[in-house]
Structures are given as C-alpha cells and as structure tokens.
Design a protein around this nucleic acid. Structure first.
Lengths: 158, 158
DNA sequence: CCTTAATAGATCGTACACGATGCAATCGTA
DNA sequence: TACGATTGCATCGTGTACGATCTATTAAGG
C-alpha cells in the first residue's frame, strides 16, 4: 500500500451528477430499444421525426438547434431517413445553401404509431415526479449549455 | 395543409424525459470537454479511472457493472488507458478468463488532478438541488434498468 | 461587377455504445 | 477424468457524436 490516506474529500462515482445523467441515458437507450426496433428506427432517427412532427419543413440547422446536434451528425441520419421513406430533403430554392427537411405521410404515420408506446411506466415515477424531473433535467441542460457558451465567449475566464 | 387537426394528445419533444436526459448528456459532454482535454482523456476513460480509484483491482466485468458497460465497450478503452500508462491489465492467475485492471501511480495522480475541477457551478444548482437531482436521476436509471431486466426475464409480457 | 468574407451542409477521422459472434478457460456431471 | 455447458473477455459491424475541414452559395464592400 503506497497510500494509506487516499485524500478525504474525493467524491465517489455515485455522487457525480454527470454520471447519473450518463448512465440514465444508457438505460433509456436500452429501455427504448425494443420499441424502436419494432418501429425500425434508431433513437436519434426517432427524435428527429418527433421534432419534425412538431414543426415540419425545418432546415438542417434549425432541426439541429432543437435536437442539440450539428450537421455532421444530422446529415447521415436524415439521409437514412430519406432512404427509409420517412422524410424528404430538398434545397431551399430561395437559398440553395439550405436544405429543408419534410416528413412524408409514412413519417407522420410512424410518429403516430410510436405515440402509442411510452416509457412513463418504466420510469417508476408518478406523473407529478415525472414532470418535475423532466423540468429539472431540462434546466440543468440549459444551464450547462449556457456555461459552455460563456466560456467560449469569454477568452479569459480565470 | 393536408392535416388541420394533428391529433390532440401528441406530446412535444420538450415533454419527453428521455430527451431531457439525452440532451443533458450531450451538454455534459461539451461542458466536460475542455477539462478532459486538459487531462488528455475522454469522458469514458475518465469515469473508468474514477471507478478504479474508488475500488481498484476490479475485473473487466466488475468494472462494467459499475459503469453500466459491457466488455465490448470497455476492452478498447482499457487498452488505450494501458497504452497511456494509467492502468495495468493482467489475467487473474486463479482464473485466467478474468482480466484484473489496476490503476498505476500515474492513473492515481490523474484522478487527483481531475478532482480539482468540477462542474457543480456550471450546473447552476444549489448544493441541495444538485444532490436531490443526482438522487432522482439515479433512481430513474435504476427503475429503467429494472424494467428492462423484467422484460428480458419475462418472455411473454403482453 | 468583382473580390472577399460569411454561411449552410456535407465529408472525414476518431471514439464511444452495443448486438452478434468467437475463443479460451472453467465448471458440472456422469 | 472426459466432455458438453457456461463464463469472461475480445473482435467485428453498425450507428451515432463531434472536431476539423471542404464546397457551394450568398452576402458585403469597394
């Protein structure tokens, strides 16, 4: 034993909020897998369809803002969804740099099929706790993003 | 407009707890990036070191239980950490199937360096809220995992 | 009008996650 | 003690994330 006093204030893995979020995300991925397999899409493909149902005809960039993803991640996913027949990608005639993504009828039908199956039950939370946790985690996300933005905007934080 | 009554009870993306967790995880990844870049490791490599600091000499499987990862994900990460000089991997002489992972002094030193930098501030939460959210997200994760385990154990759920 | 800068997507390389599979070591049981 | 089953780790293929870079298009300035 080279160190018999391993520093008193070293937090454990179970105390990390980032690890709770990380591992909860992994758990969600596994819980969603059977549902999404039945629909024939992946998780990221699915949330893209959900976002487009909510607001159709978005550009790749605008969709990325809603999903917190960049074009380098979205482009291959949207191309796959196009091959599957769930979306259409076309250049905006008014600005050929932009690509407008639209749900097909098949894409809308898929969204409606998926709405039948939820995981509220698997979360083991009451509806009130569910909503509260949803709100708190969302706020955490927004705080983190804001702090990253600040760091980027401020070249000399300390 | 082909559909002027788009189903009343269709939840929005912002109402999904899974999406809150998913996007919070992305946000954490970006917030952690500068810190981990300074340490020269990735997030998954980092939590592996944290787990080994907490309990050293774990097998790949036991480490995977703590991190919620399988050997197919862990093996390449641990090999990289070995190349970097932070861990040692050796077969257990008592059971040659198992590989025991041990932190090197350099690995322990890295853990101590990383402990200086935290993101509690970036979360924008009071210490109490931080702990409460950490506990709630952890419970959500465990509930999800249990529900997946049930589904796997029960061949005919419905 | 022409050149330069900015913008929006797309492409490429790296690193996870994870299902499926392979393989060596061990266990269980006759 | 054979030998089939199980276990533990590793390998492979697919699909995200994301930094860096490229290209085409538009905007801005002289």
């Amino acid at each position: 034993m080279t160190n018999d006093a391993p520093a008193p204030a070293m937090p454990k893995l179970a105390d990390f909020l980032c690890f709770a979020v990380y591992s909860a995300n992994l758990a969600y991925g596994r819980a969603y897998k059977p549902i999404l397999d039945a629909l024939g899409v992946t998780y990221t493909q699915w949330i893209a369809i959900v976002a487009l149902w909510e607001e159709d005809g978005l550009t790749v960039g605008a969709l990325g803002e809603r999903l917190f993803l960049e074009s380098n991640t979205l482009t291959p996913i949207l191309k796959k969804l196009e091959v599957l027949g769930y979306v259409v990608r076309r250049r905006d005639p008014a600005d050929e740099r932009q690509v407008i993504v639209t749900l097909t009828p098949a894409g809308r039908a898929l969204r409606e099929m998926g709405a039948q199956r939820t995981l509220v039950q698997a979360s083991g939370l009451t509806p009130d706790d569910f909503r509260r946790l949803q709100r708190d985690v969302t706020r955490l996300r927004d705080n983190l993003i804001q702090s990253v933005g600040h760091a980027a905007a401020d070249p000399e934080p300390a």
